[in-house]
Nucleic acid binder design. Structure first.
Lengths: 341, 341
DNA sequence: CTGAAAGCGCTAACAT
DNA sequence: ATGTTAGCGCTTTCAG
């Protein structure tokens, strides 16, 4: 049996509650007893039992992190470990622990959330994705359980705390960049339109195209999974159009790699034949070859840190107002585009 | 206040202890009362409070997962989310939760482990790395706290449960493959020699080289960080030797991408000028271009699943013997090598 | 087959 | 400034 607060109390010659107060660093305890108690704790190798503490205070000093459900390879996206690192860093500072759910299918993820929330395992939850009509989001909202979204909620936007980039604008910037360097036929490749991030990036692209009075045929907007196999057909289709694009806005670096790969396979090269711009600034986008990608640095790590900060604020103070945090982005101009002026 | 076991008991007209037994599906409770109690639970929306349960039984139904400490980009390696997914899958099945520590610096990681272990937050720990003289490993061993390593321990090998690949043999296979297709000058690029995985892969390479009576100059074995900046110098050095290698065994796919990139920058191409073989079979190694990598599929996901299985066995039964599980590997021959016969 | 009661280790009034 | 006491919600003897 581990050493408890009582053992410490006995040795230090005080009451258990006093020990408890010392742990909490209660100012009403004399420095003298504090010292005595701390020595006793050290001598005995005392460590507070979290479960007992949580039970008594009805909290857990832990936050849950929910990855998107995905049988597929989406989790191989380094985006996730990177936000996680950001979240973990803030959590560590504030002495919170991290619970994660590494989604299998949608049902499993939902079960995990239930377990976290209903079992009192966590004080709040961070959602690492945002899709329309998400049952998990609804569950959390209904329960009034503290949560924050990394990304933008698809509904009740003003009532939910979230941290996001201005994806609309970033995407517009990217598209305009392509336009500025002479491209007139620009297509968009993104993930599922169920994801708000895809929608925002798509809309930013559209907006830029329209403002420049360029063509915006349906076939120029394609939505595919990360997977090579999925993307393959789409890309082939795109480049067998009568008027294939010369510029591409792709919603994710990992996807971009797949696209470039597919392009090569059908005999096209980037940036010689097609200019490509992308999102996320994964470390990968820099070391991959060729070419290093022109991509939007969305500050993934920082997204993580801020989401953790917001969540913990919310968890500590239930009626902390909903807030929105927009993390600035920064376009890294590299070698995947070419001026055709 | 949430609904408790007492509320359920009252509604069902039984004692709290009976409800508890129903939760545990105790066979000595009549089917009839079980039904009644279950109905009451459902009606009230009852969910057991994990903390209370854990406190009573002194366990947590949670396992801790420790990532390597790393200020650098190592965590951007998709290896981690992938093992995590494997671990999570098994954990979900067995109703365990996952605690993760996403290492900042070494000290922080150590603190996290302390918190997990001493605070009774987890029943066991999975270490996602193995380095020599690791204080965390020592701490866990000394405390006789259940843990398993993904990778091979550097000491006390027979007393520690671990799941690993036969990295020595895999590396030897890779090297022999290069030899078979005509290469006579083969170099090895790996990470820190503090990591057992690096050592094993290095030794496999050495063994193959020696058995074929090829040259094994010191300069042919380089150890660098994942980072491009770090790898850069090393690669440049390697290819300005009097006798630069024509074949490369690289210890990690992500590193390989960096290497290929650097090669390109100094005007060499893979596989035309240098053949490259690699490890991990990250999804990336397939979609990246050019070329798709010849790489060892180490079954990352499965490494995760098995480690979780072992750990949970160990956590449930403290004197479960230490065991070793070797996950088979499979070399994916792709396009990054070229026969020069 | 079920109930009563003690206790897991800690916190938080309430006293003093 | 510190001690007493009553829980937090659950499990688990021990009775019956």
């Amino acid at each position: 049996m581990a050493v408890t607060i009582k053992d410490v109390a006995k040795i230090a010659g005080v009451a258990p509650s006093t020990v408890s107060r010392v742990i909490a660093d209660n100012p009403r305890i004399s420095l003298d007893t504090k010292k005595r108690v701390r020595k006793a704790m050290k001598d005995l190798g005392y460590h507070p039992n979290i479960n007992a503490r949580n039970l008594a205070v009805r909290s857990s000093q832990a936050i849950g992190v929910i990855m998107p459900s995905s049988a597929d390879k989406a989790l191989q996206n380094p985006f996730f470990p990177e936000v996680l690192r950001g979240i973990g860093s803030f959590a560590h500072e504030t002495e919170y622990s991290l619970y994660v759910s590494t989604g299998g299918n949608e049902k499993e993820v939902y079960e995990e959330v239930q377990r976290m929330v209903n079992g009192n395992r966590v004080d709040g939850i961070i959602l690492l994705y945002s899709r329309i009509a998400d049952p998990i989001q609804k569950f959390l909202s209904d329960k009034k359980f503290p949560f924050v979204i990394v990304g933008k909620p698809s509904e009740q936007e003003s009532e939910i705390t979230y941290v996001d980039n201005d994806n609309f604008k970033a995407s517009k910037d990217l598209t305009n960049h392509l336009i500025e360097i002479g491209h007139r036929h620009i297509a968009f490749i993104g993930g599922s339109t169920e994801l708000t991030v895809t929608v925002d990036r798509l809309n930013g692209y559209k907006s830029a195209i329209k403002e420049s009075d360029l063509l915006l045929p349906e076939e120029y907007m394609i939505h595919t999974e990360f997977l090579k196999s999925g993307g393959r057909d789409a890309v082939e289709q795109l480049f067998t159009l009568d008027q294939p694009p010369t510029g591409l806005v792709v919603a994710d670096d990992l996807m971009s790699l797949g696209v470039i790969n597919t392009l090569e396979e059908i005999g096209l090269s980037c940036p010689d034949d097609v200019s490509l711009t992308s999102f996320n600034n994964l470390y990968l986008s820099e070391i991959t070859t060729p070419p290093p990608l022109t991509t939007v640095d969305i500050q993934i790590y920082n997204l993580g840190v801020q989401s953790a900060r917001c969540l913990i604020e919310k968890a500590k103070n239930k009626d902390e107002p909903a807030k929105r945090i927009i993390i600035p982005y920064d376009i890294k101009f590299r070698k995947s585009t070419r001026s055709i002026l």
